[in-house]
């Protein structure tokens, strides 16, 4: 395997094994596919956004406060996730785990407020079956939320592995890949923030 390779002492652990390098590159390609997946959901949502049938308009129910709370929780979690990788590259396992746990906490907070918001919408008479527009909304935002949920489980598993096995080329590549996934979710949220919430509120208010 990677025994014969020589490394610059500065090379991060996750890039030291062939498998680690290929997995990271492969994950970038997977993220390209995820971009395509989300783009179809965005396209569906944006095409259907005015088809509200007898239900409420989208912008009518969006609230700035809830939106900002969710956005800042996710933005900050992306930042702390970056700090975790930064600590990993200094071979600081404790720092890595600490920042990742903070990231998970912020992710859970995001999910809590997102679910609260969904329940609020349903209470106001907008569920997934209310209209084409609301179907598009719940599928798009819900798919993102499902990704966050999956990410929380995934990061937790990887952290358990790091705690058990320490930082090796294998575990650090896994941490790095989960960090790419987490940042990617923030990127998707930026577009949900803009295309769904801001546009919805602008269209509704004038």
């Amino acid at each position: 395997m990677a025994h014969a390779e020589t490394h610059d002492p500065n090379t991060p652990l996750e890039y030291r094994s062939e498998i680690g390098r290929l997995n990271i590159l492969g994950f970038w390609i997977f993220l390209g596919a995820e971009i395509a997946l989300f783009s179809t959901l965005f396209a569906t949502y944006m095409v259907l956004t005015h088809r509200i049938a007898d239900g409420p308009a989208l912008g009518e129910l969006f609230e700035v406060k809830s939106l900002l709370i969710q956005t800042f929780l996710l933005l900050t979690s992306s930042f702390t996730c970056g700090l975790a990788v930064h600590e990993m590259r200094r071979h600081n396992v404790k720092g890595l785990i600490t920042w990742m746990v903070v990231t998970l906490g912020l992710g859970l907070g995001f999910l809590y407020f997102e679910i609260q918001e969904f329940l609020h919408f349903i209470h106001e008479g907008a569920n997934i079956g209310t209209s084409a527009a609301w179907s598009g909304f719940f599928i798009l935002v819900g798919t993102h939320g499902a990704h966050v949920t999956f990410g929380i489980f995934w990061v937790t598993m990887v952290l358990i592995q790091v705690a058990k096995r320490g930082l090796t080329p294998a575990t650090s590549a896994k941490v790095f890949i989960t960090s790419l996934y987490w940042h990617f979710l923030d990127v998707v949220w930026i577009f949900i923030f803009t295309a769904v919430y801001l546009m919805g509120m602008v269209m509704h208010h004038g």
Binding site: L31, G32, A36, S39
Partner: peptide, 13 residues
């Protein structure tokens, strides 16, 4: 790869 994915996404949307 990411630029290509972004291109595909923009074309789709």
């Amino acid at each position: 790869n990411i630029l290509f994915a972004a291109f595909v996404a923009i074309v789709i949307v």
